[in-house]
Design a protein around this nucleic acid. Structure first.
Lengths: 392, 392
DNA sequence: ACGATTTTGTTGCCCTTGACGCCAAATCAC
DNA sequence: GTGATTTGGCGTCAAGGGCAACAAAATCGT
């Protein structure tokens, strides 16, 4: 019935698939949309939308409810919301812990479990651990349809086969984590780069909603990762390794600002240097930010100023090349920005192509801890969203 | 008959439009394709392709010819080629001259006229000059259908309305060149950034054929411009200003390599510095390259080596972020690369993320002087290629 | 030289799908 | 309560691509 998706040619099946995908995607992204809204936003005919929504209801992917008190003239339009039944399992393996979550359509995080580990886990151990946690979550999965497992991996993930090419933090090299997870859990799995998925999540559900050209930079304990959204699509590059801003070598306006022989962004602008300046050994993001914003220590303030100056060059370079509408900063980079937004933005304004910078804003990420769960789930949902009729 | 192209929803008209566009685009990009090839590449049915080609023939956009001696079993498939009738006028205004060309579908450059100017021309003068040259070319345009005029402008062009936001070389600021050209010539016009269009041309017809992720850097007398192709689409960014690699500030492995306080790529890696080292005052690309590759002067070789080192950092940064399959270098940058490809590539290999660099090649641009004509024409053809039935 | 084989254009029919028009339903304003 | 407005529901329509059978044009084998 459904033809192959080969080639450039459009197909009548493709129209149906595309429309079903558009409607489900709309409901997924907005969380809830009335049928009349769907009609307007898709540009399709009312009767067509009715048929599409009807099919999605039959597929148990969405539900229709009567709205309460719209305060508007005219016959009320049923509100279409994602069906609670359909969920994805999101996984984020990290050095110190593995986080597993259950995420429904509409980016509703149902559950999140963090399992600490006391030693760096191998891919095999990771797969076993995931299977273990998923088994524990079985209670949350009864009467639910699990589309699959999405992994947000802190490393380079090859896009053709979701192989982890290099995850320095976990010490994984050329790891076929996906088949391991699939055989351990019996469920379909996908993997992607954590920062790219985080950027995608911010684009769909965070500060980047409705913004089709943005760059996302996340500052974590292990370095700086990033993702690029261009024209509403995630920029992966040839192999899916795009977005490695942390390995870039920005210029230095003042050579005295340079701290390392390499001069890579993540060596110069780092959480570790901030902690060292503060005299701390660790702590979560919120306490770090509080300490940074309330400090009176000249040394800390100078280190912050230095990191802002270096970050400004890196952002200017990115803005020149990508001309984003929005720069989203996550993790400690948000704190670095917050410590002196005017100074940072003035530096960017001075160094970026003026026209490219004009339309650009810099802001902090919004989704917090759910970001990677949502991003990873998005990966698991992607096949369903692209072709809602193919799966039950 | 043809519905609006609004929203996310696909439409039956859209199918026809899309298929017509796919077939015409295929013929345009390949220069000639048999009907059976079109059938295979589009994935459409033979009868559908026949109908589509038939419509394009009726629209006088393509012609069908019997192939000569295929030496293959089976009934020979008619070869579909672009109709000679349909052409675009390509314009490249520069500081010292304006180049106007006639380019047919399939990127066939029919004519190219270079009109020298002795002073920097204003937008008004440019429009008048274009109209003058186009009038002179009237002989080449009889019995031809001109889809419009495409301008490859050395400056930032806003994508929403093709306004020239900033063209430092021409000293144009916020210039509505498009309406000026339209009223001077009575033809529809479009404008775009020269380097971005050059990159697009290399992607479609040059060394980047079939490569969907590439970056293009062109070294000209006035600086370094660039374009990014990602996922087969030109990356424009929010306003269309993307690709300004020349304004980037790369890091310096050795601070002694730095020549300017700014440290922007195009100030550090420049044609002017090469000419100065050679003791020349000007000359075209070919003579510059010949001089550079045959020089025995240690000073020139050192300057080349320095520029290669700086360029390597800039390319590494771009490769980390964009993970291209191909880096295309044009203008004097191709010469800089050719002067020591191993050294440049070793530096990139040392500084880029290894996984991202692995699948990447660096090569010289292929299209030569026709590049900007083809790119500008592509802009004029774009509406026709997107919806072949809309225009005659 | 002539038929078999292979490949591909041609033709008529079918099915799917979205659009359109009319009617019914639900809410608000007066 | 009545009219205006908005929107869902249903039947009908038309357009477009898929499909299968047939025809045509080339090569290959004998």
């Amino acid at each position: 019935m459904t033809g192959p998706v080969t080639g450039l040619g459009r197909n009548l099946d493709g129209v149906r698939r595309g429309n079903l995908s558009a409607v489900l995607g709309l409901v997924h992204r907005t969380g809830a949309a009335s049928r009349s809204q769907i009609t307007q936003l898709t540009g399709l005919n009312r009767s067509t939308v009715a048929a599409l929504v009807g099919e999605l209801v039959e597929l148990q992917l969405v539900v229709e409810n009567n709205p309460e008190a719209t305060n508007r003239v005219g016959r009320p339009s049923p509100v279409v919301t994602p069906h609670q039944r359909t969920v994805a399992i999101a996984v984020n393996p990290e050095l110190d812990a593995i986080t597993v979550g259950i995420v429904g359509l509409g980016a509703r995080v149902v559950r999140r479990v963090r399992r600490e580990v006391d030693h760096p886990v191998t891919p095999h151990e990771t797969a076993a651990l995931i299977a273990e946690v998923v088994a524990e979550l079985a209670g949350d999965l009864v009467d639910r349809h699990v589309v699959g497992i999405g992994l947000a991996v802190p490393g380079l993930v090859r896009s053709v086969d979701d192989t982890v090419r290099w995850a320095p933090h976990l010490n994984w090299i050329d790891s076929g984590i996906v088949p391991l997870v699939e055989s351990a859990t019996g469920r379909a799995a996908r993997a992607g780069n954590d920062a790219s998925l985080g950027g995608w999540a911010e684009h769909l559900f965070g500060v980047g909603q409705g913004i089709d050209d943005l760059i996302y930079l996340n500052g974590g304990a292990s370095g700086i990762g990033g993702g690029v959204i261009s024209g509403g699509r995630a920029l992966g590059g040839h192999s899916g390794f795009a977005g490695e801003f942390g390995q870039n070598r920005p210029g230095f306006a003042d050579t005295a600002d340079r701290r390392t022989p390499n001069g890579t962004l993540e060596d110069e602008v780092s959480r570790a240097r901030l902690l060292a300046a503060l005299g701390l050994s660790g702590g979560d993001e919120a306490t770090l930010e509080a300490a940074l914003l309330s400090t009176v220590s000249p040394a800390v303030r100078e280190e912050l100023a230095r990191q802002r100056r270096v970050l400004a060059v890196a952002l200017s370079n990115a803005i020149n090349v990508l001309n984003p509408e929005l720069v989203v900063l996550g993790g400690f980079l948000a704190s670095v920005h917050a410590s002196g937004p005017e100074g940072l933005e003035a530096d960017v304004a001075a160094q970026a192509v003026p026209a490219a910078w004009e339309g650009t804003r810099i802001c902090s990420a919004a989704l917090g801890e759910d970001r990677l769960m949502i991003g990873a789930a998005e990966l698991a949902f992607s096949a369903l969203l692209a072709d809602p009729a193919s799966e039950g």
